[in-house]
Amino acid sequence: MAKRSSQAASTDIDMTPMIDMTFQLITFFMFVMNFSEAEQDDRIQLPLSQLAKPVDGPVEKPITLQLTSEGSVIYAGELIGVHDIAGYLEREKSFMLDSGKDPNTATVIVRADGRAKTGEVQEIIKICQQKGFEKFALRAQYDEGR
């Protein structure tokens, strides 16, 4: 039997569906991606609460202090002792004053681990108060309660 001659040298594949799907995937990942998660840390297991509904907008002038279960504070990615935050807060306060902002209007977000000691959370609040901060937000993870 005679061998069939080969088909056309170049086969045109229709790429349109693949490109459509790929662009849809890119769009999905772009919308799902959260760029504001820099302040979150995996070392912290937040306590659960049914009332901890996500905040509507960004918090005004936030200072995030994260307390680990071992009693250390994560501030700006650095692991420091609870009493060492005073120096950092002083720097933050002077920076705010230099840029014409009132430290009283700044919000200190406390992301404390559920296993941390309450006394340590209170100490953080006390140090913040001594530095002139008086608005606090205790952060918790939203529990759907299912």
């Binding site: 979150q40 008086e134 606090f136 937000a137 918790a140 993870q141």
Partner: peptide, 28 residues
């Protein structure tokens, strides 16, 4: 380029749980 973009978004995606705040005002 499109596949590189997909790879970037896939690897930088982090599934996070929603968080909320309890506001407390405590002057010294």
């Amino acid at each position: 380029v499109v596949f590189q973009l997909i790879s970037f978004f896939m690897f930088s995606l982090k599934v996070i749980s929603p968080e909320g705040d309890f506001d407390i005002r405590m002057p010294l």
